[in-house]
């Protein structure tokens, strides 16, 4: 009885010791991993700074203009070619017509348009009556 208890205690102690050691090693590995990732992030951020500067250098308007003249047949737009109000474009898909209601939110502009339409229809109704 006594002997088994001792053996059991010893085994438990060894097992828990091993488990703690295992845990510690795992945590250490994870920490190393995270540190490595943090270092990598820093390196990437530094690289991004360089790339951003390079991007700015490569896309400076002067360069874009030269490229455009060389490779594209584009001209600056004339006033006539610019449409300020996109609704003037014919056959432009308007998207799904959805009624405003609970759980259906419409953009403010669309809502106004709807309500003004309703008002108008009501007014015309009133006139016919």
């Amino acid at each position: 009885m006594r002997k088994t208890l001792t053996i059991f205690a010893a085994a438990t102690a060894i097992a828990s010791g091993a488990a703690v050691l295992q845990l510690k090693i795992t945590v250490q590995n994870k920490v190393d991993n995270v540190k490595e990732i943090a270092r990598q992030i820093k390196q990437d951020r530094e690289a991004i700074r360089v790339l951003e500067a390079e991007w700015a250098y490569l896309t400076t308007p002067q360069v874009l203009q030269d490229r455009s003249i060389r490779f594209l047949a584009l001209m600056p737009p004339r006033a006539k070619q610019i449409i300020a109000d996109p609704s003037l474009i014919p056959f432009r898909p308007k998207g799904l017509e959805v009624e405003a209601g609970e759980g259906v939110l419409l953009p403010a502009a669309q809502k106004e348009l709807k309500s003004s339409k309703e008002k108008k229809s009501k007014q015309t109704e009133g006139q016919t009556l």
Partner: peptide, 10 residues
């Protein structure tokens, strides 16, 4: 153990 990403020093 909190690991912070070191700031890019400029």
């Amino acid at each position: 153990q909190v690991v912070t990403v070191p700031e890019v020093q400029i």
